[in-house]
Simulated assay, not measured.
Amino acid sequence: MKGPLFYSKILLFGEYGIIKDSKGLSIPYNFFKGALKKDDNLSETAKKSNESLKKYFHYLRDLQGQEPELLSIDLKALKSDVDTGMYFDSSIPQGYGIGSSGALVAAIYDKYSIEKITVLENLTREKLLRLKMIFGKLESFFHGKSSGLDPLNSYLSLPILINSQENIESTSIPSQNLNGKGAVFLLDSGIIGETAPMVQIFMDKMKHEGFRNVLKDQFIKHTDACVEDFVSGNVKSLFGNLKQLSHVVLDHFKPMIPKEFHKLWRRGIETNDYYLKLCGSGGGGYILGFTQDLTKARTALKDYHLEVVYNF
């Protein structure tokens, strides 16, 4: 048995801000992917995944018992498959902010949901919001609290534009220009990040009025502008807003940036060779980079591995 593939995602803009109703933009990233598989002879990694799926089955059974109107999963089929060695075969690195649990949740929903909303339907705003809500509950097992966006992106394999928590839509983004000098890239921090502690730091910061004001007046303002610039293809304005956003994150989200990257982050702002921002909740994993000149950025970051996501 091998199920369909589900891809990783990248939240280009909106980390933390979407909790407080900023705009956001999430795109599928097809370089990493995962699928449900079954095997008689499991490797150590597959065994670990199977054990995790056993625990997840219990969570889903309880969730369905508590909220039958939200969810109808074929629990009998799921239990039978898990008991006979099903696992999630994935190349998506865990703790890297690109949706490893989201892809798994999308695969489970796709295979076992009895009344599923499919990609082939007319995806009205109501359907998208219902999917997001279901996925949020399904993914909470892994993070404590989930917006549902990662699985939604993985399930639909379409760019998702978040206008607010109650207003999301699938969108199109400008076609890649593979000969363009500009690029969005991933920088590997070499550290595994954990979402829950980072979100806790953010929530603690939110108790202070000064931080709330920074979030509203600077962070969300520049995030919203970046989303609008990216979707409309306004590159000049985008990089002006990216520089501001990178600065705000360095000044006010320092705990989410691994210490050894503080100098590198600042250097990008000072030289304009590249701008860095958080990829997901931060604390490790990937860091997102934007540059108008990939050759310059590669030279400036020659000691690091760059993975290009999008050219323009």
Rank of each mutant, 00 (worst) to 15 (best):
161 L>F: 13
147 S>V: 10
224 D>W: 08
187 L>C: 00
216 K>M: 12
158 L>I: 09
173 I>V: 15
176 Q>W: 10
202 F>R: 06
234 N>F: 00
158 L>Y: 03
214 V>F: 00
229 D>M: 08
214 V>R: 04
251 D>I: 05
239 F>Y: 12
188 D>P: 09
190 G>K: 07
188 D>R: 00
181 K>H: 05
227 V>H: 07
238 L>I: 01
234 N>S: 15
203 M>L: 09
172 S>E: 12
223 T>D: 04
221 K>P: 02
224 D>N: 15
215 L>N: 07
200 Q>F: 00
169 E>K: 13
159 P>E: 14
155 Y>T: 09
205 K>V: 00
164 S>W: 07
215 L>T: 12
150 D>Q: 12
197 P>W: 03
154 S>K: 01
223 T>M: 11
153 N>Q: 01
201 I>E: 13
166 E>R: 10
175 S>G: 03
245 L>Y: 15
161 L>A: 10
248 V>G: 12
246 S>P: 10
188 D>V: 05
233 G>N: 04
152 L>A: 06
233 G>V: 08
183 A>H: 01
210 G>I: 07
174 P>H: 06
218 Q>N: 13
192 I>V: 12
163 N>G: 00
242 L>D: 04
239 F>G: 13
174 P>A: 04
147 S>P: 06
236 K>I: 03
172 S>T: 03
150 D>T: 05
165 Q>P: 05
227 V>Y: 06
161 L>H: 14
196 A>Q: 11
151 P>A: 14
187 L>Q: 07
186 L>Q: 08
147 S>N: 07
212 R>K: 14
207 K>H: 11
219 F>E: 13
250 L>S: 03
169 E>L: 10
208 H>G: 11
247 H>R: 00
173 I>S: 11
158 L>F: 12
193 G>C: 06
199 V>I: 09
238 L>W: 02
192 I>K: 14
163 N>F: 05
250 L>D: 06
236 K>W: 00
233 G>A: 03
186 L>H: 10
197 P>L: 05
166 E>C: 06
147 S>H: 05
160 I>E: 05
184 V>H: 04
185 F>V: 13
237 S>F: 02
178 L>M: 00
196 A>N: 12
149 L>M: 10
248 V>T: 11
181 K>M: 07
202 F>I: 07
251 D>H: 04
151 P>V: 10
195 T>V: 01
210 G>L: 09
220 I>H: 10
197 P>T: 09
207 K>L: 14
157 S>A: 15
175 S>A: 14
231 V>A: 04
251 D>Y: 02
246 S>H: 05
188 D>M: 11
230 F>I: 04
182 G>C: 05
151 P>R: 09
235 V>L: 08
170 S>T: 10
213 N>F: 02
146 S>R: 08
235 V>F: 05
231 V>D: 04
232 S>D: 05
219 F>L: 15
176 Q>G: 15
199 V>D: 02
192 I>R: 01
166 E>M: 01
247 H>Y: 14
186 L>I: 06
221 K>F: 14
148 G>F: 02
232 S>G: 13
148 G>A: 00
175 S>D: 02
215 L>S: 01
